[in-house]
Amino acid sequence: MQRRAPTGGPAIEKYCLCVERVSNRRERDGPKEGALRRSVAPRRRVTLRQQVAFSTDGGPTTVLELSPVEVLEMKRALQSCLIVAGSLLAATAARAHISVSGPAFAGATHEATFGVGHGCDGADTYRVKVQIPAGVTSVRPLDSTFGKAVLEKDTEGNATAVVWTKPVADVLPADTNFYKLTVRFKVPDAPFKTLYFPTIQTCRTADGTETIAEWVDTSGEHGSHDADAGTPAVNPAPSLAVLPPRSPGWNKYTVNEHVHDLSVFKDALIVWAGKAAYSPNPNTQSLIMTEPDTEVLTAIHPGTEIWVKY
């Protein structure tokens, strides 16, 4: 018996997630017997008459023939996506910080762009110092329209920080611009590790007064708030997730780090750890929650063997 869970992502034009019981055989490259197997299968054309027209990313309009039940499920999925997107936008506006592009892949070269979303209390950003975590090598910063980059090293020649400084004459009279600062480096071979880049932001007013914002919290608890003020207690350091190499289909990994933020699997179809499973797709996740003999995967601990399907 198959159950189909409609997806709300761009792949809805051609694919849907299917869920089927595997009871009589073991997949050579998949989870154990009796577990759910998620696979991506072509969407079958249905014979009922209701048509739905839509486009993704401003592209050509696509027309699907769907049953009334499928139309209702699609609407519910889209409504859920809009609610989640609105929550994320609100959270981002409330806790804007210095970001870093990712994820990165273990042992590979990564070009990270740090985004400076705002200045300090209305003052323009004047200098940004990004500390380089241990294990990151072959660091080569790029000059920016913001200002030139200077690479700092310790006595052994290891890169410790990159500093971008804006010419004083270019400092703006107000906090109006978004800045991008880029550095290229080799990622350590440490899958599922989170790299933190503590950052010091210096802002400057028109009269030369400087203020400093320290984005240095590496606890990972970026959602914690001060009970009295209702604002984040500590500014989070930019963080970069390190993922293992992957291939389409099933991938087997042994995790050697604590993984409490499963958003590192945001582009996976499903993740299995023993009898526990997780999917970033809300419809598949709801099926996991109701499937007999299946637990919801909420965290991964060191030494755990997992299967991930991309």
Rank of each mutant, 00 (worst) to 15 (best):
residue 230 G to W: 00
residue 255 V to Q: 03
residue 5 A to E: 15
residue 214 E to I: 07
residue 245 P to V: 03
residue 150 V to H: 03
residue 186 K to H: 11
residue 203 C to N: 05
residue 115 G to N: 03
residue 229 A to L: 07
residue 45 R to G: 05
residue 253 Y to Q: 02
residue 181 L to I: 10
residue 40 V to D: 13
residue 148 K to N: 13
residue 124 D to H: 02
residue 140 R to P: 00
residue 298 T to S: 13
residue 156 E to P: 03
residue 217 D to V: 06
residue 6 P to K: 04
residue 110 H to G: 09
residue 236 P to F: 01
residue 179 Y to Q: 08
residue 260 H to V: 13
residue 167 P to G: 08
residue 99 S to E: 13
residue 268 A to W: 00
residue 231 T to E: 14
residue 75 K to W: 07
residue 161 A to C: 10
residue 139 V to A: 07
residue 68 P to S: 10
residue 10 P to M: 00
residue 45 R to P: 14
residue 142 L to I: 01
residue 168 V to F: 02
residue 30 G to V: 02
residue 104 A to V: 09
residue 5 A to T: 12
residue 102 G to E: 03
residue 200 I to N: 06
residue 74 M to C: 09
residue 232 P to E: 04
residue 220 G to D: 12
residue 66 L to I: 07
residue 270 I to G: 01
residue 295 E to V: 01
residue 100 V to M: 04
residue 205 T to F: 02
residue 175 D to C: 06
residue 167 P to W: 00
residue 93 A to L: 15
residue 237 A to G: 06
residue 73 E to D: 15
residue 75 K to D: 14
residue 127 R to Y: 02
residue 125 T to I: 06
residue 214 E to Y: 02
residue 134 A to P: 00
residue 141 P to C: 13
residue 297 L to I: 09
residue 303 G to D: 09
residue 95 R to Y: 12
residue 208 G to C: 04
residue 25 R to T: 08
residue 154 D to Y: 06
residue 212 I to F: 03
residue 103 P to S: 05
residue 170 D to S: 14
residue 178 F to I: 14
residue 85 A to R: 14
residue 290 T to P: 00
residue 73 E to S: 09
residue 92 T to F: 13
residue 74 M to S: 10
residue 293 D to T: 10
residue 85 A to D: 14
residue 203 C to H: 02
residue 245 P to N: 04
residue 187 V to F: 02
residue 117 G to E: 14
residue 5 A to Y: 10
residue 128 V to E: 04
residue 175 D to F: 10
residue 52 V to F: 06
residue 287 L to W: 07
residue 239 S to P: 00
residue 122 G to S: 07
residue 204 R to F: 01
residue 158 N to M: 10
residue 291 E to T: 15
residue 278 Y to G: 04
residue 300 I to Y: 06
residue 135 G to T: 11
residue 88 L to M: 15
residue 63 V to I: 15
residue 238 P to S: 05
residue 297 L to D: 07
residue 102 G to C: 04
residue 302 P to L: 00
residue 65 E to T: 14
residue 102 G to A: 02
residue 307 W to F: 12
residue 37 R to L: 15
residue 296 V to S: 08
residue 160 T to H: 01
residue 37 R to W: 04
residue 76 R to Q: 15
residue 69 V to E: 15
residue 293 D to Y: 10
residue 188 P to F: 00
residue 63 V to H: 02
residue 146 F to D: 08
residue 5 A to C: 11
residue 70 E to Q: 11
residue 122 G to A: 08
residue 222 H to Y: 10
residue 145 T to Q: 13
residue 272 W to P: 02
residue 67 S to R: 09
residue 187 V to Y: 01
residue 179 Y to G: 05
residue 231 T to W: 05
residue 67 S to G: 13
residue 50 Q to K: 06
residue 310 Y to I: 12
residue 60 P to I: 09
residue 8 G to V: 03
residue 144 S to K: 05
residue 82 L to N: 03
residue 175 D to A: 06
residue 250 W to V: 03
residue 181 L to Y: 06
residue 189 D to F: 10
residue 287 L to H: 06
residue 208 G to S: 05
residue 273 A to N: 12
residue 1 M to H: 07
residue 60 P to E: 15
residue 308 V to I: 09
residue 254 T to Q: 08
residue 293 D to W: 06
residue 27 E to W: 00
residue 138 S to I: 01
residue 232 P to Y: 01
residue 275 K to T: 15
residue 210 E to T: 08
residue 81 C to S: 14
residue 307 W to E: 11
residue 173 P to H: 06
residue 180 K to H: 11
residue 126 Y to W: 12
